[in-house]
Structure formats: C-alpha cells, structure tokens
C-alpha cells in the first residue's frame, strides 16, 4: 500500500493519505461495453453528475474505471471507505484527489473554512468547493467517487451533495458508484438535469455483450446465452463463469461442457 504525506496540510496534525484510494484502479475485465460507455458519455454531456447504482459484482467499478480512461477528461478518483465519514478525512481525500489534477486546489477558500468547520457548515463547504472549481483555465474534470454508500450514514453526505450538485460548473462532472441509492431526495436533481442514474438492470450484460465476452474466452454464443440466463447478466458472475468454462475448455478436450446451475454460481 502506498502512503503519502498529506502535502496540503503539513505540520503536527498532519494525516497520512493512502494513495491507492485516490488512484484509478487497474483494468481487469476483458471487454469494453460501448452501450454503457455511451450512456455515461451522454450523461456527462447533459447532466452534472451520475450515480451508478448496483449490488456488489454488478460491474460498477470496472465501468467507472473504463469510462474514466475513455472520457478524455482529467480524472480525480476517490475510493471511499467506512472511516471517511469523518468530515475532515472526507474532504482531505476529496481535495487531494482533485489536487492531483489541479495543483493548489482548495487552498485559498476551502481549507481555511475546513479548519474550523463543523457539520453545520457543510453547505458553505460545498459552495466554497464549487467556488474553487470555478477557477478557470483547467481542463475539464471528472471526479469519480467510488463506493459512496460506505459513508451514507455520515451526517455530511446528504447536505453536501444536495448543495453541491445543483451548483457544479459545466466543466466538472461527478461520477458516484454505490451499492444503494443515497438516502436523499434525488428526483428534483434528476428532473433538472443535474443527476443521471444508471441502475442495476442497465448494468446487466445484454446478450450481445455476453457473446462478446465469451468470444474473448474462445467460447460459443450458445454458452454465453445459457450463462447469461443463469447469472441474470451480473458482470462478475458472468465473467467467472466464462473463465472457468474457458479453463475447462483448455484442460479437457474440445468437448463442450454441460451447463448446470452449480457451475455458474455468483462470485461474491
């Protein structure tokens, strides 16, 4: 694990940041999914933010990482963990991830407020955050916040995003992945073009995507179809199914293996 000193706030109270948390995860899956990438691209053009919502193993992170690389924007990645519910920690990571792309971000307005801010000032923090983002002259930015559900019980989340999303500048898009929908009213944001939501049914593999994936493993369209029905299109299950089938294919003969429900259980 890479650990970095929090260079924005050196001194006695300095905290260490885990670099991995603000780095785009490596790519693992073998196919690209243009349908979803297009959807995200459209959302980036027409909305201020996107939530990818789905259970574990539904392919959120991989999709977000794929999109981050394909988006053509500067990327600030922040993987949230349970302890990040603390206001100071949350903002430190968030600022740090953006600072990688926009040096000096947050120093002038955000951090001075943050030093003394309590939970009541979350709205103001959001405004200051936007204010700093408005500083022109940078390339457009995509902020990815992974696994935000980890801190849904923290007081800061709802008021912060509620204030933030309507105010985001046009050249900044926030992409959030989460296992459940945030415990906050979202419809207004959705109807006002501030938020786009991709839900699990959309994340599920389509027949064509499953075929593409299986083809990649040297497997047939029929196998893909059967696997798709068993896994309900869930990304990780489908992937591990393809992997095991492919290995079987190599180990044994060219015989097509029989498909059973047992072979195709989920990977989680």
């Amino acid at each position: 694990m890479l650990i970095i000193e929090n260079f924005t706030n050196p001194g006695p109270g300095a905290m260490q940041l885990i670099l991995e948390k603000i780095t785009i995860p490596p790519r693992t899956i073998h196919i690209s999914r243009p349908r979803l990438l297009n959807l995200l691209y459209e959302s980036m053009g027409s909305c201020a933010s996107t939530i990818i919502n789905g259970r574990a193993g539904s392919g959120k992170t991989i999709l977000a990482a794929d999109f981050a690389k394909a988006s053509g924007r500067a990327i600030a990645w922040y993987k949230v963990d349970g302890p990040d519910g603390d206001l100071q920690i949350f903002f430190k990571y968030l600022i740090a991830s953006i600072e990688q792309q926009r040096p000096g971000f947050g120093r002038e307005n955000l951090q001075p407020i943050l030093r003394t801010a309590g939970i009541e000032q979350v709205g103001l923090l959001a405004e200051a955050f936007v204010y700093e983002l408005l500083d022109g002259g940078h390339e457009p930015l995509l902020i990815v916040i992974e696994d935000l559900h980890q801190v849904y019980d923290a007081e800061l989340v709802v008021p912060f995003f509620r204030r933030l999303l309507p105010l985001l500048p046009g050249d900044v898009h926030i992409l959030i992945t989460s296992r459940t929908m945030p415990p906050a009213p979202l419809w207004r944001l959705r109807s006002k073009q501030r938020l786009f939501v991709i839900e699990e049914p959309e994340l599920a593999f389509s027949r064509q995507e499953a075929s593409d994936l299986f083809e990649h493993y040297g497997l047939s369209r029929e196998q893909a179809t059967i696997a798709l029905d068993h896994t309900h299109g869930r990304a990780s299950a489908l992937n591990s199914c393809a992997e095991s089938l492919a290995l079987e294919h190599i180990d044994s003969s060219s015989q097509v293996p029989a498909m059973t429900g047992n072979q195709i259980s989920g990977s989680n």
Binding site: N109, I113, Q121, L124, E127, A128, V130, Y131, L134, P166, L167, L168, P169, G170
Partner: peptide, 8 residues
Amino acid sequence: LPSFFLRT
C-alpha cells in the same frame, strides 16, 4: 459566514 458568489 461568508457566502460565495457562484456563477453556476
């Protein structure tokens, strides 16, 4: 507290 003028 101060409030920010936000062009957005």
